[in-house]
Design a protein around this nucleic acid. Structure first.
Lengths: 338, 338
DNA sequence: GGACCGATCTGAAACGTTTTAGATTTGCCC
DNA sequence: GGGCAAATCTAAAACGTTTCAGATCGGTCC
């Protein structure tokens, strides 16, 4: 088949060998020239780079990976049921935007909330299928954070843990959100507020609750407790709970919602009960899509920027991979008026 | 370091060599045993499999990939500006759900609409960075479809081309959507309809237009033309065009929208103009999130199932990789009442 | 008893890369 | 002109896998 060894006339993908053949150098030299090693002469480097560009050489990822163990992959771990719905798409947007200029590829690793959330993380570490990992839905004593931290594996989380491990994260300031939302409701003259909280096991549930209650105290408002429902509950479940609450004698006149999708359920139920949003009842909500702001302008909207989160998380992971310390890789994003 | 060669006591990740050492077999035998080759005895196969399971052996992807060229990767190519917004998350959901049980990983390859859409496809083919590829925003004579088809590279598209290439696709029946939407509007007594169409260069724009106009003809309705705006136009742009249209003397009494996000702009503008949806004006829309149905029940909603699309596309690509023919890998999903 | 066969196993090579451990050349010093 | 250092290059090994081309061993056939 091959007339002369290393003959580059073939249509196959160029390798180091191809360049070596074309320049008359050894494969080692070519490799070192391309990686800008100190013991290669300037002229050789230039010649090699020229040829490499001409023939469109790109290092074979499998070769690099096999030899060095470096995968050039960042893995985004997603809970299929709760996360792939909407918000996350902006996160993917931000992540891939940042990764596009880098040699890294973004791979999406899904898991089901029925599974142990540690499984995908363990899989990635054990099989070495990524250089860094990003995930969310963080708990105060998150097993994944602990696992990765112990092993020194680069990771950044959307949300944070609170067990004293100094890890990279990007978090929305949910405490400030709670406070601000309450303040805005108070400014509209609302006196009796409910909170539709995130699932209690997630760290940011606590943050939001703290903000909410401190806001209540500051503005001297009353809390109307809301039980057995979170922003993750199914639409119908939220609606039925809100309906019940709205028809009770001491109904709230305002509510702080932890998510846009749950706010939709709240609004539907409230309107079904004959209330007019903005007149009888006010709703505050975090909105990533700007959909609320555009669609239901009577709703009180605070913006949460998931794209910025993606950018920040990608940045952090890349820096960790480059050997930087996790200290200083913590970003808390303040709520912005929608 | 290593006392005995191949000593498995080390904490390192097990390889074929580890199993070979433990069973006293050769590496070749172990490899062939695991791949169920015919010239390995049953007892050996069982013994090898047992040990492999015990020590949690997983083939090194880089090794396999380097040797065989198989990447075990499916690439989803996304236009960052228009696609990562919402709808696509369900597509990712479906894709990864189907791929989870397979050895394939899903990697997300973003591109900007400013770039040549062929670039990411070419990159993947040239660098061999995936075994199959999925993308959308298909044009009638799509360059990517042609490129991949010529090279026999496995791919499936969300939407279809119309140049006679028999490729795998999953498409929503946008013609039926157009017809049905018009029918539903007609049933509500609407007589003068507008269409907020998809960008004209995409295949499904034609389909939707055909359905729309045939629906108009069948129910003997009038078309109110809508110019210089598509469902991809910015929110503000759509609003201003709709506002202008709504204040004109021969305004439509109903509209068919190509996307949920554009419908939001339409509704906002209509309400700003003092119209009440469902009374003065009706809006028909495709909704993937079920958000419209839950939120604005006066809107006429037809459901588009992106998760099913993801499942179908993953299925198709896997089958193509397995050597099946593209014929028969075409699915057209009918619109479903929201 | 020699040839042959089937069943079962295996060494070596190869995929493309990086790194280790030199090899070669040149110039300089004494 | 021998020794030495600096500059520049390179062969070979290794990462883990699959595959090619046998090797080995009983047994069978004539």
């Amino acid at each position: 088949m091959n007339d002369s060894p290393g003959d580059p006339s073939t249509t196959a993908r160029p390798t180091l060998k191809t360049i070596a053949y074309m320049t008359g150098l050894g494969v080692t030299t070519v490799s070192r020239a391309l990686s800008d090693a100190p013991d290669i002469s300037q002229s050789t480097k230039e010649r090699v780079r020229l040829v490499a560009n001409q023939i469109g050489y790109r290092p074979n990822r499998a070769g690099v990976r096999l030899r060095t163990g470096k995968t050039n992959v960042i893995s985004l771990i997603l809970s299929i049921e709760t996360e792939v719905l909407g918000l996350t798409s902006h996160l993917v947007y931000g992540l891939s935007e940042r990764l596009r200029a880098s040699p890294y590829h973004l791979i999406v690793t899904p898991y089901s909330v029925d599974d142990n959330s540690l499984d995908p993380v363990r899989y990635i570490v054990e099989t070495g299928s990524a250089d860094g990992v990003v995930f969310s839905r963080i708990e105060p004593r998150d097993a994944r954070v602990q696992y990765l931290h112990e092993r020194g594996f680069p990771f950044a989380t959307h949300g944070r843990s609170t067990m004293g491990i100094d890890h990279a994260f990007f978090d929305y300031d949910n405490q400030a959100y709670g406070e601000t939302a309450v303040r805005l409701l108070a400014e509209r003259g609302r006196r009796r507020l409910a909170l539709l909280p995130p699932p209690a096991h997630l760290t940011y549930a606590t943050h939001m609750l703290v903000g909410f209650t401190s806001g209540l105290a500051r503005h001297d408002l009353l809390e109307v407790p809301l039980h057995q429902v979170t922003s993750d509950s199914p639409h119908e479940k939220i609606m039925s709970v809100i309906t019940e609450m709205m028809t009770s004698p001491n109904r709230p006149d305002g509510i702080v919602c932890a998510s846009a999708s749950s706010a939709i359920a709240v609004i539907s139920a409230a309107e079904d009960a004959g209330l007019v949003i903005g007149r009888d009842f006010d709703v505050a909500v975090k909105d990533a899509f700007n959909m609320m702001r555009k669609f239901r302008r009577e709703v009180i909207v605070l913006h949460e920027d998931f794209r910025a989160a993606g950018l920040g998380l990608a940045d952090a992971v890349l820096r960790l991979i480059d050997g930087e310390n996790a200290t200083g890789q913590q970003i808390i994003q303040p709520p912005r008026p929608g």
